[in-house]
Every structure is written in structure tokens, then in C-alpha cells.
Amino acid sequence: MIPVLSVRGLKVSFHTDQGRATVLDDVSLTLERGRVLGVVGESGCGKSTLIRTILGILPDAARVEAGAVVFEGENLLVFSEQELNQRVRGSRIGFIPQDPLLSLNPVFKVGSQLLEIMRDHAPPGTKRRDHIKRLIELLRRLQVPDPDTALERYPHQFSGGQRQRLLIAAALACSPGLVIADEPTTALDVTTQHEILLLLRELVDEFDISLLFVTHDLGVVAEVCDTVCVIYAGQTVEAGLVGAVLQTPTHPYTQALLACHPERSTHFVGIPGNVPSTLRMPPGCRFAPRCGYVEPVCSMALPESLQATSGASVRCIRAA
């Protein structure tokens, strides 16, 4: 069974005033059908760039230098803009953005915006009436209040949680095989966050979708994901089943992340040091300057990804 999404050795750089910044350097991940993969990393680690690369909406200053993004057997990186727009975005890959208020066009009715997605991507032969019916059904399933009239309202007339449900409906409207969620609960309050996470999990099981869940919060990963992939400084450092990685983390960065999590530590803990600049990456392991277990060999060459005892793939010499 081929995975729905397979990212291999992805390297993406940006052109900036101060030179070439390598934001993603050898990122690999695999998402199996019907599963939820959590992509975890701090702000600036390249999560947004990863999403944009998959969807093909990188800014002009960016360049994909190496790697492949294989979706349902096809490498998206070789698709043309038109192919991506017509055949992939909105139809086979759905997207749930981070901030529901900022992501909705303020001067158009919600219905217009959702119908626009279906306009080009819904199955041929279906008409606007059918689209509206489908959307209302989805809204009802997602528990958006007054689904019959919701489409006639404007984004500012909904609450944060309701807006996020609208966007989830938008993502599911054309029955995609893959849904990418970019920190979908960060902009919401804690209670609503929990509701949305539960909802997402239900939807994954009910509609048999595969979900790529990007977040900075390991707690959320524990709640919703089946597998997890930890990214640091543009590289995958640990990847495996959620149970394995969270209970027996192997990479020092993963361990540090877990240790800092508010639910795990009683006092404020941080990881000393800073993420290296994308302009000047250190040779060797990128976490070495901050690692508690650092050894001289770590700074000399980039460690390979090895299989740890937990079953996870870990980029650290300690995995052996």
C-alpha cells in the first residue's frame, strides 16, 4: 500500500538580501492512508515552507533545490502551476489554515468563497445547487449553527471556532484524499481547541482522509496523531509512531521538547541556546551546540538517520 504522501530529501532555499537561506535541508516524511501525521517544530523551523512546497505556493524568492514530494504516486514538484491549481489544490489536497479570521476574505459572503472552491474542483456534472446542498450538509455535520443560512453571512459574523469549522468544511468539500492542517487550533481559545481536535480525529475516521497536521505543540500531537515527525533547523531529526516517540524519545531535541512542555514540567524550562541561522548552518549536527550529550564527532559530520530501539528513525549517533 503506497503512502498517500511521501516527502523525500526535500531541500528548499530562499534568496534574501544577505544571501541564500536554506530553510529546509533534507526533510523526509511519510503519511500512510487514513492516518494522521504530526509535523512538529518550533517557529521558524520551516513548517510553513514545507506546506507551501507541497501545495506549490512558494514565493518567487524560493527555490526547491532537491527532493521529491510524492502524492498518490505522483511527484508534485514537476507539476505545472495550472495542473496544480486544477487537479490538486482544493480538490485532492485540502488545506486548513492557521488563522480562520485572516484566511477568509472579509468582503465576500462565506458561501461565495466556499462555492468558489467547488466551482472548479467538484465532480463534473454537479451543479451549484448540488454544491450548496453538500456544503450545508457538511456544515451541519461540523455543527456550525444555522447551517441553512450560514452561507449567506460574512466572516466577521461568526465566532473563531465557527470560522474554523467553516474552513474545515471548505477543506473537505471536494472529498480530498489528503488534508494539510497548519496549526489549525493555535488561534483559538483552549476549550475550542479541544473541540476542534476531537472533531478532526472523528472526521479522519469517518471520511477516510489522511491528515498532515503541522504544529508546535507536542500535547496536540499526543491527542490527535498516529505518527509524528520532529523537525529542527530544517531537518527531520526524529520520526516514528506517536507512542514510541513521545514515550521513549531518542533524539536529544525531542527529549528537550518534551521536558519543556507545560504539562510535563512544573517550572519554566527552556532549551539553552538559539536555533542556528538559516544563512549559516553549522557543519555536523545542527543541535550539537545546544545538546547535553554532545561529543566531538557530532560537530564534524551530519549524522545519518538511524533506526532506534523504539522503532523511530532518528538523526543522532545515540540511536545506534
Binding site: L84, N85, R89, G90, P97, L102, S103, I117
Partner: peptide, 23 residues
Amino acid sequence: DFVTYERAMGYRRMRLIWRYVLR
């Protein structure tokens, strides 16, 4: 951000610019 979202959801370019961005 909504322009990014509209691109990500496959809005057709001409309609995106002349209808959704312009207004």
C-alpha cells in the same frame, strides 16, 4: 493571509485577482 488561502485552495488566477483581490 486570505490571498494565500485562496491560492492554496486552487482559486483560478484570473478570478482570484479580478474578483477576490480587487474588491
